[in-house]
Design a protein around this nucleic acid. Structure first.
Lengths: 231, 231
DNA sequence: CCAAAAGTGTTAGCAGTACACCCATGT
DNA sequence: ACATGGGTGTACTGCTAACACTTTTGG
């Protein structure tokens, strides 16, 4: 089915106007005891020089989840991280070029697995603490706010935060993740009691020696499910 | 900026292929003591004769929420109902015509406010109990499953179910809604204690006489927020 | 031996659950 | 008078939150 217009520079034609569809990813990690997220510096207009979420246009035969994973892999070199759909942002005018509808994703990964490099159309990629974000392109401040709220509220009823830890971890590290996320101190005994009652972690039997203090037991997740929902 | 192709039947042209974007709405209500949802019978191919969620294409300058509300108003004649974005479904091939990405919404309304009439491109519109759905077009069975799960899980931590009641209601009516949703009986005293501890409802002072029994106190929601999140 | 994080139980309060009878009305 | 749903309190149980000391290592 050839098209007589396919030799022009706008060969894809429709009876009604179509929006462009992108995915954008809010990738959180914990670095330096702070919740941080990945941004790229835009190398092109619009918003050239501003920071924006990593993301890009959905290929015409590509599933949305695959697109988010692909864009993220291109930016971070990491595959197989936690990814969930967050919501879709489509206010007319949010992109000055054309109507763009963005399907946003929430992603989590432990710092250890990430080796960020700037991609093709990004001038730079960098981590920013959620508490100290630069001016953002498009409506990405709003997307980030939604992602952050979702992450925090999911702490209450799921094990989503475990995605911020590597495969093996100590209870102290787990507690640090939670304390960073809720931005408060947590009672050590209560936390450990809670964590072990989840039936989502098991001791590997190994010990980890770090620093001049008693070695800590090493744990890993039981089951292969990425996140569990509590009670 | 005129375009030399605007007199053809496909005048909207792009450098890269663009998907079509629709909104689809899962509108729940309670009828005959059962959770039911609104479906339309498709009058055109594809899936002609099958039942589908009400919805349609997003206008190029229309916000997504507005599109969902508009499509629903066209089908039900109701405005100002509870509407929240559910998720976006975009698997390639879900629509055999072209790539269509659908932003799904969850809507709730009390039966009293609904006067459903078949719209333009629908052969018919009808209510179906969630437990007895007909064969569905596209991936709408999946969309409905997600909507149903979301509704049920939100019962635990929000007052979303109040959206299934009219402005004023009795505690007995409220309890019936909850019993229908969880598909189980609830202890009357505990339910009433819980409902009144929410600080989300207040007695109007009026009584409602219905049937041969003691009249019931009438309540309404306090505050103007559509739903409140609990603790 | 000192500093630092690992590890460990008990108690008190509160929220959720189970449970039974009288009240006001219409017929 | 009877059938129907409206309206009310108490006791138990299980989860949550507060709280301090000993252990093991590295320096």
């Amino acid at each position: 089915m050839t098209d007589s217009r396919e030799d022009t520079d706008q060969p894809y034609c429709y009876r009604y106007p179509h929006p462009a569809v992108t995915t954008d990813v809010v990738l959180f990690t914990i670095r330096d005891d702070a919740l941080q997220l990945l941004l790229i510096e835009r190398g092109n207009e619009p918003f050239k020089g501003s920071w924006a979420l990593p993301g890009g246009f959905v290929d015409i035969d590509e599933d949305l989840d695959d697109c988010a994973a692909r864009e993220l892999a291109e930016e971070t070199g990491v595959e197989n991280l936690y990814l969930e759909q967050l919501g879709t942002f489509g206010r007319p005018g949010r992109d000055p070029r054309e109507r763009v509808i963005s399907v946003a994703y929430l992603a989590l990964a432990p710092e250890e697995q990430l080796s960020v490099r700037a991609g093709d159309d990004a001038a730079a990629a960098a981590w920013f603490p959620v508490k100290a974000l630069p001016p953002l392109a498009f409506d990405h401040d709003e997307v980030i706010a939604v992602a952050h709220r979702r992450l925090i509220s999911k702490l209450d009823y799921s094990t989503i935060a475990f995605q911020l830890l590597p495969e093996t971890f100590t209870l102290g590290e787990l507690q640090q993740v939670y304390e960073t996320l809720v931005d408060a101190e947590i009672d050590k005994r209560n936390f450990r009691k809670w964590a072990q009652a989840l039936e989502q972690i098991e001791a590997t039997g190994e010990l980890r020696r770090r620093g001049k203090h008693r070695p800590a037991r090493v744990y890993r997740l039981t089951g292969r499910d990425r996140i569990a929902y509590l009670k």
